[in-house]
Amino acid sequence: MAFSPRTWILLALLLLLAAVPPVADYFGQPFYLDLLRRVMIFAIAAVSLNLILGYGGMVSFGHAAYLGIGAYAVGILAHYGINNGWLQWSLAIVASALVAAAIGSISARTSGIYFIMITLAFTQMLYYLGISLEEYGGDDGMQLKVRSQFSGLIDLNDASAFYYLVLAILAAFLYLSRRLVNSRFGLVLQAARSNEARTRAIGFSPYPYRLAAFIISGAMCGVAGALLVNHTAYLTPEFMNWTRSGELMFMVILGGIATTSGPLLGAAALLLLEDVLQGWSVLPKWLHEHWQLYLGVILVLVVLFARRGLASLLPGNEHHD
């Protein structure tokens, strides 16, 4: 199978990311390691959202729920002194999948605006549940005192080891989602997005496929949540805030829906821009003060001039990947 130009670019991007730790170390800038790790964790969440939003046409406005569930699974076990990462992360995946199954079984029967509102409503419920859990810090959240332990295999306190773990998971998920969308399952999912009446007329019932995609997507995002809480070493219901769901959606759309590299490009563009506008002292002061405004302007321009997202600016065609 020959690689398309887009695949080469994606591979080059991942290699570039792999080169960051030694370079940052050489220049004594560990901050960038932290920033890019965050970018990649959100890219993982965006990859999972792209599966249902991009390929499935299911506009989930509540994907932060699974970030939260993944994070709480790790945080709550740690709270009771269970620091075994295998256990914590398994729980993160299973709990996310179960919640996705529950939410999906209802929302996947609807479409359009109803789908958006139902996914949002469920996530708001979980958000307020998080706030009400005083035992786990309520709306203040709580510290993750010990990061997940993987039987000495990998130490998440080692910034660069953690970074490479995130990179490896990102690469694996990109590959996984690529396989998935081109499989029989993925084609049914895309067919149902493209033309539901036609899909039913040729003999597919879209619902079970949509539900399965929703569950897979939730489980993948649960992994991102487990990574995120280890990254911040802090657990907070803010992970499930609706603005977080909106950011994830924005990353997917900005990067280019239903493209392989889109979620990574979108996450990187949004978080890096945010960081540059917010923090770079070489930029004039007026930029810092109203950075959100300028971020908004830039995003509007990107959406206007690259309608199909940043990935559409890359050479080649997604369809023939």
């Binding site: 399952f185 049914v188 899909t199 399965a212």
Partner: peptide, 24 residues
């Protein structure tokens, strides 16, 4: 793809997640 999907709809369930359908 359009026609292959119609064939696929009548070739058992499509919970097959790995092999590329376009090379099938």
């Amino acid at each position: 793809d359009n026609v292959a999907l119609a064939v696929q709809a009548h070739a058992g369930h499509s919970f097959r997640f790995w092999r590329p359908a376009r090379e099938d």
